[in-house]
Design a protein around this nucleic acid. Structure first.
Length: 1055
RNA sequence: GGGCUCGUAGCUCAGCUUGGUAUGAGCACUCGACUGAUAAUCGAGUGGUCGAGGGUUCAAAUCCCUCCGGGCCCA
C-alpha cells in the first residue's frame, strides 16, 4: 500500500534546484524524456551568436522555447530540440582582431589567413562552451550534446547546395550595387547590418552653388551633409510638382524650392526678392557646371551629367533647398534615379574608403577626412553659399563602430526581387503569433525587400562556392565537397574554409583555369539555411523527410528582418516553400530604467544573479508570465512578487500533503470517481474549476500564449485553492476517523494538486519535480519524474458552470457578512445567530439555499435565511434628515419650522410616495402647504438595533448580532481551543500527539459555559483529559492568557 | 520621415477581437482578523479625468481620426 508523501515545510530554491539537477542526472531523466514520444514536432532553435554572455533577455528566449518543448513532449510528441550556434562572421573576426591586437585586413594577411582562421575557430568553439553551460543552467532541456554548428563541414555543404540551386534558378547574380561599406573592415555590409547602428552625429552641412550653364551669376542651390560625395556629382534632383523660384539676393540669382526660401535666407542681413515662380518640372534638363570640375578632371568625361533630373520620390521639403545633389555612385536613391536617366555611376572611392586616382586632387585621401578640404575649395571658388551645423543619423559598422560610407561595388547577390511574389504567398501560409507580426510587419518587409547582397570581402565565414574562369569569365557553383573533388581531380581531404579552399583550382570548359571568388558569405546566410542545414540536407534525405518544415520557431521582434527573413529566403530559393509553419515573435527585455540592457549602461541583469537570489523557477514563472510580444521590463520587485506567489504554491502543497500523509491517504485507492457520492458541493466546485483551468491552459499553451496560462494558473492557485478551497475543507481534515467526507476532500485535493502539477511542469520544471518526488512519486504506478506524466485533458462532464456561478454568489455573501461583522466589531470566531440575504433574484436565492452549509460554516452563523427586497424593506426604519443647507436659503427664518415639520413625517411613507411619483406636503405655520422636494431631505435607512447590513453585488446581507449565553459559550470555547493549539505548537507537539489539559476559568459563569462545551474542546485539541476549574493547574507549565479582557490560566502536557 | 506596436490605480499589468456602470488583478499603503500552512494566511479600506484632443453612437478604456510619449524595424 502506498500513500501521499511528505515534503519539506519551506521552499528554498537553491537546494531544491540543485537536488533536482542531481536527480535528473542520476536517473538520466532528460534522456528518457527526450527519447519518448510519437508524433513529430520540429522545433527549430534560432542560433545565438556566441560572443557575449547571456542576460535575462536572452534567457527569456530560451525559457520560452523550453516551456513549449516541454508542453509538446507531455502531449506525446517526439520533439526535435537541437540547439544551434552561429559561429562565423565579422563579429568574431573583430573580437579576434582585438584579442591579438591587429586592426586591418593587411595585418591579417601578414599573419597568415590560416592562423587567423584557426584563432577564429577556437574563439567560436570556446564561446560555444560558455553559452551552453549558461543555457543548461537555466534548466533548458535541449540537445546540448549535439547542437548544429554553422562551421561544420556538412553545414557548409548545405549552404553550398542552396547557392548552387540559386544559380540553377538564375537567382544568383553579380553586379554593381550601391552598398554600405565599412572602410575599416573593408567589406560590404547589408543594409540591415548597417542600420543596427545608426548614431546621431553633429556635422557641418553645406549649401553649394551650382552655376547654371550660359547664365551669369545664376546658381542652383543645393544642400548636402556629405561634401565628400561632391567629386562624384552627376546631377541635381528636383520634384516635378513642388513650386520652385528664382530668387535674387546680393547680386546673385538662386534656384531653390519656394518652401525652403525662408530657412535658407534666415540669417540676418540676407534679403531676397523672388523673381519668378514655377513648378520643378520646368527645370528639367537645365544644365549646370560641375562644382569640382577643376579638382576632379574625370568629371568632364561624365556624360550625360550635370543636369537637372526629376524625381517625385526622393525630394522632400523638410530640409535642404529642394534641389538635391545626386551621386549615383554613393546613394541608393541616387542610383535608382541615375539608372532612369542613364547617368554614370561614378564612384572614385576604393575599399579602404580612400579616393582613387579618378578623384584627381583628392586621390589617396580618406573620404570623410576630406570634407574640410572640399569645403575650403568650394569657398575659394566662391561656390559655398553657407554652412550649417546639422544633426543627422549616420550608419556605423555594427561591430567596429566605424562610420560607414556608401559606395558602388561589384557584389554577388540573390535576386530576392524576383522571388517577392512567392515569398508573399508562402508567408500567407505561415501562422504568426501575434498575427500582426506576420501580416503587417513581415509582409511589409518582404514587399520592400531588395536584392540580398551575400558576398563579404572577409575571411571567417562560409566561402562562396563560386569558381570563375580566368580566360572566359564563366562561373561555376559547386554544391558539395564531393562535387568539388570530382571537379578537381587529385584533391585530397577538403577543408572548406579559407584559405585552404582558395587553393583549389578547377578546369573550365574552355580549357582555362577557374579560381574561387575570394568572398565569404554574409553570415545571415549561415543561419538562414538552418532549417535544412541542421538536418544535413541534401546529403541525408532521411532526416529531412522526417522533420522538415519546422513546426515552430520563436525569436525576438528584431528578427523580422533577420532570421525570420533569411530563413524564408533560403528555403524558397531551395524548395520554393516556407521553412516554418508557425512563428512566435517575442519582445525585448529592458532594464528597470526602461532602457535596453547594455554593458556600457551598467544595467545588465544576468540570469545567474536572479538564480542565486530567487531561483530558476522564479525567473521562469516571471518571464513566462509577461506578455510574450511586448517589451519585458525587468524589475526586481516583480521577481520578489513572483517568489512570494511560489511560496504560497509550495505551502499549499505542503499543507495538503501533511494531512494526507498523516492519514495514510492513497489516491490510488480513492479516486474522485470512487468517492463520487461523498463529494460535497465545494469539492465539485473546485473540480469544475480545475477542468476549466485545464481546458484554458491547454488552449493557451497550444496557441503559444504561455503568459495567459501562467496568469490563469496563478489566479487558480492563489484565489481558488489556497484562499478558498483549503479554507472550506479545513474542518474536514481535522476529523480523526475514516470519515468518508474527509476521504472525499482528500481525493479531490490530490486530484486537483496532481493535475495542477502537470500544468505547471513546463513552467517551473524544478519545483514541480521536487513536489512530485516528495508527494506523488511514491504512489503505485507513478513514473519517476513529473516530466514523464502525460498532459491532462479536461473533462467536460465535470464542468459545472452553474455551480461556479453559485459559488461566486456564496463568496460574495460571506464576504459581505465579514464586512458587516467588522462594522459591528464582532470577530469571526463569535458565532452569529442568523443572517438574512436580501435578494429578488431566484438564482441567488437558489445558490444561497443550496450552499447554506458553506455559508454557515465560513461565516460562522447558525442560520441563513433568504428574504425578498420587500421583506427587507419592511424590516427597515427610514429616518428623514432635513437638508438645512437647501432649506435655509429658500425658507429663511421659517426654515426651522419647515425642518421640524419634515422630521415629523413618516420616512417610509414619504419614500414610498416619492417612488410612486406622488408629491408630499407639509403644513407649516405662516407658509401654508409646502411641497417637500426630494432634495430637501437625506434619507437614512435603519435596521433594528441588533442588525447590521452590507450590500454586495447580489443583494444585501443582514446579520443578527444578538448575543446569547450559548453563542458566547461557543465563541469562548473556540477561543480556548486556539490558545491550547498555540501551546501545543510552542511545545513542539506532533499534530497527532495526545495531551491532557487544564483550564482555569476567570469566573463560575465562564467555567460553566466552557464545561458545556468540554467534549468539543477536548476533541479539537486532542485532549484525553480536560479539566475546567477555578483552581490553578497542578501540572505542566501553566500559561496565562487573556480572552475578552479576562484572565485564563492554561496548562497542557503530552501523554 | 514611413511601417508595426505599446501608453489603464504609486508600481507591474488584465480588460480592447464581439462598445453597455473599471465590484479590475497582484504588489505597495492604512486598518483589522487569524494563530493546527505562521519569516505564512485572511478580510476591509484608500487610490484611475483608462496618454491628450476630436468624431461615430442612446452609450466609448473598447470603434474611427489627429496629436503627444516609449519600443522594434526601415529610410
Amino acid at each position: 500500500m502506498s500513500r501521499i508523501g511528505k515534503m519539506p515545510k519551506d521552499y528554498r530554491s537553491k537546494p531544491v534546484e540543485e537536488g533536482v539537477f542531481a536527480y535528473w542526472q542520476e536517473r538520466a531523466i532528460e534522456e528518457k524524456v527526450r527519447g519518448a514520444g510519437q508524433g513529430k514536432f520540429y522545433f527549430l532553435d534560432g542560433p545565438p551568436y556566441v560572443t557575449n554572455p547571456i542576460h535575462v533577455g536572452t534567457a527569456w528566449n530560451k525559457i520560452l522555447k523550453d516551456a513549449y518543448i516541454r508542453f509538446y513532449r507531455m502531449n506525446g510528441f517526439r520533439v526535435r530540440d537541437q540547439p544551434g550556434f552561429d559561429m562565423h562572421g565579422l563579429p568574431i573576426e573583430v573580437m579576434v582582431e582585438k584579442k591579438i591586437g591587429i586592426k586591418s585586413k593587411k595585418e591579417i594577411e601578414r599573419m597568415g589567413i590560416e592562423n587567423f582562421i584557426e584563432a577564429c575557430k577556437s574563439f567560436a568553439l570556446e564561446n560555444l562552451q560558455i553559452a551552453t553551460r549558461q543555457f543548461k543552467n537555466l534548466g533548458v532541456w535541449m540537445d546540448w550534446d549535439g547542437p548544429y554548428r554553422t562551421l561544420d563541414n556538412h553545414y557548409i555543404e548545405s549552404v553550398w547546395a542552396m547557392l548552387k540551386r540559386a544559380d540553377e534558378r538564375r537567382l544568383l547574380g553579380k553586379g554593381k550595387k550601391v552598398v554600405h561599406w565599412c572602410p575599416r573592415c573593408e567589406t560590404v555590409l547589408a543594409g540591415y547590418e548597417a542600420t543596427d547602428e545608426y548614431r546621431e552625429l553633429e556635422e557641418e552641412s553645406i549649401y553649394v552653388k551650382f552655376k547654371v550653364e550660359g547664365k551669369e551669376n545664376e546658381y542652383i542651390l543645393i544642400w548636402t551633409t556629405t561634401p565628400w560625395t561632391l567629386p562624384a556629382n552627376a546631377a541635381v534632383m528636383v520634384h516635378p510638382d513642388f513650386m520652385y523660384v528664382r530668387a535674387r539676393s546680393g547680386g546673385e540669382t538662386y534656384i531653390l524650392a519656394e518652401a525652403r526660401l525662408e530657412h535658407v535666407f534666415s540669417d540676418p542681413g540676407k534679403e531676397y526678392e523672388v523673381l519668378e515662380r514655377f513648378p520643378g518640372s520646368y527645370l528639367r534638363r537645365l544644365r549646370y557646371r560641375a562644382p569640382l570640375l577643376e579638382e576632379v578632371p574625370e568629371q568632364s568625361r561624365l556624360s550625360p551629367a550635370h543636369l537637372v533630373v526629376l524625381s517625385d520620390q526622393f525630394v522632400t521639403l523638410e530640409e535642404g533647398t529642394g534641389c538635391v545633389h545626386t551621386a549615383p555612385g554613393h546613394g541608393e536613391e541616387d542610383h535608382a534615379v541615375g539608372e532612369e536617366y542613364g547617368l554614370p555611376d561614378f564612384c572614385p572611392v576604393d575599399e579602404r574608403g580612400l579616393f582613387t586616382e579618378e578623384a584627381g586632387k583628392y586621390a589617396g585621401k580618406s573620404v570623410r577626412e576630406t570634407n574640410g578640404e572640399i569645403i575650403e575649395d568650394l569657398k575659394s571658388k566662391g561656390l559655398l553659399f553657407k554652412t550649417e551645423k546639422t544633426k543627422h543619423r549616420y550608419p556605423h559598422c555594427w561591430r567596429c563602430k566605424t562610420p560607414l560610407i556608401l559606395r558602388t561595388a561589384s557584389q554577388w547577390f540573390i535576386r530576392v526581387t524576383d522571388l517577392k511574389e512567392r515569398l508573399l504567398e508562402e508567408n500567407e501560409k505561415v501562422e504568426w503569433i501575434p498575427d500582426w507580426a506576420g501580416k503587417a510587419r513581415f509582409g511589409n518587409w518582404i514587399k520592400n525587400a531588395k536584392d540580398w547582397v551575400i558576398s563579404r570581402q572577409r575571411y571567417w565565414g562560409i566561402p562562396l562556392p563560386i569558381w570563375v574562369c580566368g580566360s572566359c569569365g564563366k562561373h561555376r557553383v559547386i554544391g558539395s565537397i564531393e562535387e568539388l573533388r570530382e571537379n578537381a581531380p587529385g584533391t585530397g581531404d577538403v577543408e572548406p574554409h579559407r584559405p585552404w579552399v582558395d587553393r583549389i583550382r578547377l578546369k573550365c570548359e574552355c580549357g582555362g583555369e577557374m579560381q574561387r571568388v575570394p568572398d565569404v558569405a554574409d553570415v545571415w546566410m549561415d543561419s538562414g539555411s538552418a532549417s535544412f542545414a541542421c538536418l544535413g540536407y541534401p546529403k541525408s534525405r532521411e532526416e529531412f523527410e522526417r522533420w522538415w518544415p519546422a513546426d515552430l520557431i520563436l525569436e525576438g521582434q528584431d528578427q523580422t528582418r533577420g532570421w525570420f527573413y533569411t530563413l524564408m529566403v533560403c528555403s524558397v530559393v531551395l524548395f520554393n516553400e516556407a521553412p516554418y509553419k508557425r512563428v512566435l515573435m517575442h519582445g525585448f527585455t529592458t532594464a528597470q530604467d526602461g532602457r535596453a540592457m547594455h554593458k556600457s549602461l551598467g544595467n545588465v541583469v544576468f540570469p545567474e544573479e536572479v538564480i542565486e537570489k530567487f531561483g530558476r523557477d522564479t525567473l521562469r514563472w516571471y518571464e513566462l508570465g509577461c506578455t510574450t510580444w511586448e517589451d519585458l521590463r525587468f524589475t526586481w520587485k516583480s521577481i520578489e512578487e513572483t517568489a512570494r506567489f511560489l511560496n504560497i504554491l509550495w505551502s499549499t502543497y505542503y499543507f495538503a500533503s501533511l494531512y494526507m500523509n498523516l492519514d495514510n491517504f492513497d489516491p490510488g485507492e480513492h479516486t474522485i470517481g470512487d468517492v463520487e457520492k461523498h463529494l460535497r458541493l465545494e469539492d465539485r466546485w473546485i473540480i469544475s474549476k480545475l477542468e476549466g483551468l485545464i481546458k484554458r491552459v491547454t488552449e493557451a499553451m497550444a496557441g503559444c500564449r504561455v503568459f495567459d496560462a501562467v496568469r490563469d494558473l496563478e489566479e487558480f492557485m492563489r484565489d481558488d485553492v489556497s484562499r478558498w478551497y483549503i479554507k472550506l475543507i479545513r474542518r474536514r481534515t481535522w476529523t480523526e476517523e475514516e470519515d468518508p467526507e474527509k476521504i472525499a476532500a482528500y481525493a479531490t485535493l490530490s486530484h486537483v494538486l496532481l493535475n495542477y502539477l502537470k500544468l505547471i511542469a513546463p513552467i517551473v520544471p524544478f519545483m514541480s519535480e521536487e513536489i512530485y518526488r516528495h508527494v506523488f512519486a511514491g504512489l503505485e504506478g507513478m513514473p519517476e519524474s513529473v516530466h514523464m506524466l502525460r498532459w491532462p485533458s479536461a473533462s467536460e462532464e465535470r464542468m459545472d458552470p452553474e455551480l461556479e456561478d453559485e459559488m461566486k454568489v456564496v463568496k460574495e455573501v460571506i464576504e459581505a457578512s465579514f464586512s458587516a461583522r467588522q462594522a459591528a466589531r464582532i470577530k469571526t470566531r463569535m458565532p452569529l445567530l442568523r443572517m438574512k440575504v436580501v435578494t429578488g433574484s431566484e438564482s441567488v436565492k437558489a445558490a444561497v439555499e443550496r450552499m447554506r452549509g458553506v455559508i454557515e460554516d465560513q461565516a460562522n452563523v447558525k442560520e441563513v435565511e433568504v428574504i425578498t427586497p420587500e421583506e427587507g424593506w419592511r424590516m427597515k426604519d427610514v429616518v428623514l434628515i432635513p437638508n438645512r443647507s437647501i432649506l435655509g436659503p429658500i425658507f429663511r427664518e421659517k426654515s426651522g419650522l419647515v425642518s421640524s415639520a419634515i422630521s415629523a413625517l413618516n420616512g417610509k411613507e414619504v419614500i414610498e410616495a416619492f417612488e410612486r411619483g406622488e408629491g408630499v406636503w407639509v403644513e407649516v405655520e405662516g407658509l401654508g402647504r409646502v411641497e417637500v422636494r426630494k432634495d430637501y431631505v437625506s434619507v437614512h435607512e435603519r435596521l433594528p438595533e441588533n442588525y447590521r447590513s452590507e450590500k454586495c453585488r447580489y443583494g444585501e446581507v443582514f446579520i443578527d448580532t444578538t448575543r446569547s449565553d450559548e453563542l458566547l459559550a461557543e465563541g469562548l470555547a473556540r477561543d480556548v481551543v486556539r490558545r491550547i493549539q498555540e501551546m501545543r505548537k510552542r511545545a513542539d507537539l506532533n499534530v497527532d500527539d495526545y495531551i491532557k489539559a487544564f483550564v482555569k476559568a476567570p469566573s463560575e459563569d465562564v467555567r460553566r459555559a466552557l464545561e458545556s462545551r468540554a467534549t468539543q474542546i477536548a476533541g479539537e485539541v486532542r485532549a484525553k483529559e480536560l479539566r475546567i476549574s477555578l483552581q490553578e493547574p497542578d501540572f505542566g507549565a501553566p500559561e496565562e492568557w487573556e480572552i475578552e479582557g479576562e484572565k485564563y490560566t492554561i496548562s497542557i502536557e503530552k501523554i
